[in-house]
Write a protein that binds this DNA or RNA. Structure first.
Length: 552
RNA sequence: GUCCCUGUAGCUCAGAUGGACAGAGCAACUGCCUUCUAAGCAGUGGGUCGCGGGUUCGAAUCCCGCCAGGGACUCCA
């Protein structure tokens, strides 16, 4: 990438300045190069002289001059200038920029990829909603975030595995089974009371009815414990299928659906427990077995196995992460959790430490809450009470593309207001259509070129000299840098902004520059340009999981 | 009480890990369709970056203290 190349050349210049005695032999700061906001400051800029000034005991502007003077000749760089109080600005050569069009065309769908991950195995575990009810809007946000992050990491050279952890064990599941059994009996006209902390949502009644229509009343005729378990199994499967369908509607898919129960059946639980026990992190107290997280700096210890003998979700998590890192060998694991799990982050890191895993290898992203509004009406989302807006409803109203784009525009850290009315009403003006429209416009130009039989494969990109054309190329060059940044920061919300900027620059170009014109040479050059833009736009969209339409 | 997230234009939000005059989209206002898609383009107005200190060449960004909103602190997940 050109950005890295400039940084490297700048570092070379700094070292040479040191050997020549223009700069004292102090430790050099990282020679970072960034994109200035103001185009007048060139394509890239470095503030390194400002950072060096103190240690070198020199005027930053003087340092900047020395570095600029010693900056080696490079085919990519038109000029290197200095600006007060000590910036170095780099401007790219037009003919180098033009060549990038050919290079994007030859890379095609690979354009934007970077080799940051070096093939390292990364797991992204996300959604992982208890299969006790339908997916709601907040889960949808995490789902879109996770799937996009997985796409970015894969573009950045990681081997990515997308995983959904199915909590098919534990007390919540038990409550779900009992609730379902009760609804089942009720639907058959048999009196039955819902469990105390049962799942009261109307969907449970639908689920019970559905099972009756498919399987009849056979579960009512067996002993209740057996019925709860057998009916539960059917209900779980149905719930999972429906969750899977909901997720597919916003184009979220998984490589692995991992069963919590399998941790207990497969021996992972025992092996993991042994490790933390051997490490001295397990203690028995008050009839329960505790994880001594205080030994790792936590505020308090946590129960692993209740006095009843039933393991807690934490015990499962110990086994699960043991499995992720030590058995399946992921180099890095990213968990995406909802805001309500935020308090567990440091505990989970402690678990990793106790297992002997460097905690940095586990990254936990908290996706903040989504508040649904319908005008002034705030809809509280709770699965228990059953008053909820499902993801399915949202996608049906807003559409998968707008939904994904909208979710992605907010950083995971900030809570978001999702106003259903607004989302629907603005759907025509939604930025996602603006971006897609740019793509469709290009498709339309390319169709015209094809109708006229124009073969632009030998187009001469050196004809692309005007400002709108070069601006477009400059913007396209940003994609790989962006992929790298997002893969590093795990903050995919920059993607929709980039897509929008690229679309803006394209629309401006479109207005000013006729592509298919009587000037056949210019037409061919611009067809190449436009075609590269289409590739770039499509790539950005596909990483976000948004479609790139040919017509609109 | 303790911990986490947030507070930037009328509204919804960016601001890429400290840089050069604080941005976008909606909303408001003014122009632009005989040429490849007007779901578009060009332009105008709009800001004590929650408040108060500090760190430094330089702070929306880092530190401390307040204020406000949300979340978490269970032998629930």
């Amino acid at each position: 990438m050109i950005k890295e190349r400039i940084a490297k050349l700048l570092e070379d210049a700094a070292r040479e300045a040191q050997t020549k005695g223009h700069l004292p032999n102090v430790a050099l700061p990282e020679m970072t190069v960034e994109r200035p906001q103001n185009a007048e400051h060139g394509d890239y800029a470095s503030a390194a002289p400002l950072k060096l000034a103190r240690a070198a005991r020199m005027n930053p502007l003087t340092i900047a001059r020395h570095l600029a003077d010693l900056f080696p000749q490079a085919e990519e760089i038109e000029r290197v200038t200095v600006a007060p109080p000590g910036f170095i600005n780099f401007t790219l050569k037009d003919d180098w920029l033009e060549k990038q069009v050919d290079s994007i065309l030859s890379l095609g769908q690979e354009y934007g990829n970077v080799d940051l991950g070096k093939g390292g195995k990364v797991q992204v575990e996300f959604v992982s909603v208890n299969p006790t009810g339908p997916i709601h809007v907040g889960h949808g946000r995490g789902a879109v975030l996770g799937s996009t992050l997985a796409n970015v990491l894969s573009a950045a050279g990681h081997k990515v595995s997308r995983e959904y952890y199915v909590n098919d064990a534990g007390s919540q599941m038990d409550s779900f089974y009992r609730s379902l059994y009760s609804r089942y009996l009720q639907a058959l006209g048999i009196e039955s009371e819902m469990p105390a902390n049962g799942y009261m949502g109307a969907y449970m009644i639908d689920l019970a009815r559905e099972i009756i229509s498919e399987e009849g009343r056979r579960f009512a005729e067996m002993p209740s414990e057996e019925a709860v378990s057998k009916l539960g199994k059917v209900g779980l499967q149905k719930m999972l299928t429906s969750i899977k369908e909901d997720l597919e509607r916003i184009r979220v898919e998984f490589d692995v659906w991992f069963s919590e129960r399998s941790l207990y059946d497969g021996g992972q639980y025992e092996r993991a427990m042994k490790i933390i026990k051997d490490g001295g992190f397990v203690r028995e107290r008050e009839g329960a077995i505790w994880f001594v997280s205080t030994a790792l700096g936590e505020d308090k210890d946590n129960v692993l196995v209740r006095s009843s003998g039933a393991p807690t979700y934490l015990a499962s998590d110990v086994a699960y992460h043991y499995n992720k890192f030590l058995e399946r060998g992921f180099d890095e694991v990213i968990n995406i959790w909802g805001a309500d799990h935020q308090g567990h982050v440091s505990r989970m890191k402690a678990v990793a430490s106790a297992l002997g895993i460097a905690p940095e290898r586990l990254q936990i992203i908290i996706s903040q809450m989504v508040t649904l509004r319908q005008g002034d009406l705030v809809l509280k989302v709770s699965k228990r009470t059953g008053e909820l807006i499902t993801l399915r409803e949202l996608v049906d109203e807003v559409g998968a593309d707008a939904c994904r784009f909208f979710f992605l525009t907010r950083s995971a850290d900030s809570q978001m207001d999702f106003d259903l009315e607004l989302a629907k009403r603005q759907s025509e003006d939604n930025p996602v259509y603006y971006v897609q429209y740019a793509h469709a416009r290009i498709a339309s130009i390319l169709r015209l070129a094809q109708e006229r039989g124009i073969d632009f494969s030998a187009g001469d990109v050196s004809l692309l000299k005007t400002e709108p054309e070069l601006t477009l190329i400059r913007k396209m060059l940003l994609l790989p840098e962006l992929v790298e940044t997002v893969a590093l920061t795990l903050e995919p919300h920059h993607l929709p902004y980039y897509a929008q900027e690229l679309a803006t620059v394209f629309h401006a170009f479109y207005k000013q520059c006729r592509v298919v014109s009587p000037d056949i040479h210019m037409s061919k050059a611009r067809l190449k340009l436009v075609s590269a833009v289409q590739i770039t736009l499509a790539r950005a969209l596909s990483i976000m999981g948004v479609t790139a339409p040919e017509h609109m």
